[in-house]
Design a protein around this nucleic acid. Structure first.
Length: 193
DNA sequence: CAGACGATTGCCT
DNA sequence: GGCAATCGTCTGT
């Protein structure tokens, strides 16, 4: 699908080329795994809405709420292939190469000017930020799957779940490496299998 | 109320 | 590969 952002009447958009799934309270990598809180409450609501949160003191992340009301789940949008409004993306991310404009979940939000002010947006019938089908002319895109990135804190079964999905061969996918711990534990037990 | 830490990035060696 | 940036959120007391 395509993600479209309306910035003062102009469309900034791209094809989604990388996502991760976070599913239910049993998924220890999912924000909902420790119950409903003020931050994550949107995940417990109906599907089709944006769950946007702030992390690392500087970055925004965009999720699409999925599953039915009462079952908390969401898809983290991690990378786009830029389409419309590339000049605006460049302006939002000065210094970035075109390839890296939206290659990463925080970069994607920067490029499309997405932040907490549009948390809870209706992504199906909204106007500020929405999803639309990509008319596929060349058949289905090849989908690859890997472990999710940056979830060293999760239980092994959840670290190992193949819930990151990418368009195989796309140069616009983030170059983070699944299974590489970003932060080592004090006792040095690194690695991920 | 203090303390720990994060679904990351950019710059450094 | 290492590490600082930077602050909201959650936990335990």
């Amino acid at each position: 699908m395509r993600l479209v952002r309306n910035v003062e009447g102009r469309h900034v958009s791209g094809r989604i080329v990388e996502v991760e799934a976070y599913i239910g309270e049993e998924d220890s990598a999912c924000h909902a795994s420790r119950g409903k809180t003020p931050r994550n409450h949107l995940m417990f609501g109906p599907p089709g809405y944006a769950y946007i949160y702030f992390t690392y003191g500087m970055h925004w992340m965009l999720n699409v709420v999925t599953e039915g009301e009462g079952k908390p789940a969401a898809v983290l949008l991690r990378a786009l292939e830029p389409e419309e409004g590339i000049d605006l993306m460049r302006a939002h991310r000065s210094g970035s190469s075109d390839r890296d404009l939206a290659a990463g979940p925080a970069r994607l939000c920067q490029a499309l000017r997405i932040d907490g002010s549009i948390n809870g947006t209706d992504l199906v019938s909204g106007n500020d930020l929405f999803l639309e089908w990509v008319e596929s002319s060349g058949g289905l895109m090849p989908i690859g799957r890997t472990r999710r990135i940056g979830i060293h804190y999760a239980a092994r079964k959840d670290r190992e779940a193949l819930w990151r999905f990418v368009i195989t061969g796309s140069p616009y996918v983030s170059r983070a490496r699944p299974g590489t711990p970003r932060r080592r534990r004090k006792n040095g037990r690194g690695g991920n299998g």
